[in-house]
Simulated scan of single mutants.
Amino acid sequence: MSLRGTREVREDHQIFRLTGLLDAFSEPAFRKVIGNCIEEGPHNIILVLAQIDFIDSSGLGALVQLVKQAQTAGGSLQVVTNPRVTQTVKLVRLEKFLSLQPSVEIALENIKK
């Protein structure tokens, strides 16, 4: 599989640290796994994409769907990113919608607000 990661569940949030490619090949499994975890709760999600080598339109579409799913469940989804992912997200002007964050610590502070 081109995408791998770990999941850390805390009282009020989940952190996913992902590596590899978030593309048309990995997107269906990514969306299903993260979507199921949002349903299980907690509903605040931090996706750490700092080690992602590539994201395409399928990956961006999955992120948009997951943000909406988290918000519907009463939570939030934030993305900790790297320059490559940030550039791709900014090209389609989704940086605010996807709540791009420079670090996990800042994302955690945003949950507590």
Rank of each mutant, 00 (worst) to 15 (best):
Q78T: 01
L98D: 02
Q65I: 02
D56V: 10
V89L: 10
F30W: 07
N82M: 11
Q101V: 04
V89K: 02
L98A: 05
M1N: 09
T88E: 11
P42W: 09
S2G: 14
L60Y: 12
Q51H: 13
P102Q: 12
S76N: 12
F97L: 15
A107K: 00
G20Y: 12
I111L: 14
L3V: 07
Q78W: 01
G74C: 11
L49H: 03
V64W: 06
Q101S: 13
D53V: 06
C37P: 00
G74N: 13
V79A: 06
L22T: 04
R10Q: 09
Q78Y: 01
V64P: 02
H43Q: 05
V64S: 06
Q78N: 02
E39D: 15
L100Q: 04
D12K: 05
M1S: 14
G35M: 13
Q71A: 04
L22Q: 04
I106W: 00
E8R: 10
Q71P: 00
N82I: 13
K32V: 12
P28V: 11
F30K: 01
G5S: 12
L63G: 04
R4N: 11
F97E: 12
S99I: 01
V64Y: 07
S2A: 14
L100E: 07
D23N: 15
G35Q: 08
I45W: 00
I111P: 00
D12N: 10
Q51L: 13
D56G: 06
T72S: 05
L47C: 08
T6L: 07
E8M: 09
P42I: 05
I46Q: 06
V104C: 05
K68G: 08
A70H: 00
T88Q: 11
F97K: 03
V80Q: 04
A62F: 12
G5R: 10
P102G: 08
T86C: 05
A29D: 15
V9T: 15
P83T: 10
N82L: 12
P102C: 10
L100A: 07
F30I: 05
R84K: 13
T72V: 05
I45S: 00
V9N: 04
G5E: 13
S99D: 15
Q65W: 07
E109F: 02
Q78M: 14
F97W: 06
S103F: 08
R84S: 15
S103K: 03
G35L: 12
A73S: 14
I46A: 07
D56E: 08
L100M: 09
R93Q: 14
M1Q: 10
I111Q: 01
L66D: 02
E109V: 02
S26W: 08
L77P: 00
E95Q: 13
D23S: 07
A29L: 14
G20H: 09
V33A: 05
I106T: 08
G61L: 11
R10E: 03
V33F: 12
G74T: 11
E39Y: 05
K112C: 03
V85M: 08
L100C: 07
V85C: 09
A62Q: 10
S99K: 10
R31L: 10
R31T: 11
K32I: 11
D53M: 08
R10N: 04
L22W: 06
I106D: 03
T6Y: 07
T19F: 04
G41F: 01
R7W: 10
G61K: 03
D56M: 11
L94H: 06
V92A: 06
A29M: 12
E95P: 00
F25H: 15
C37N: 07
E27I: 02
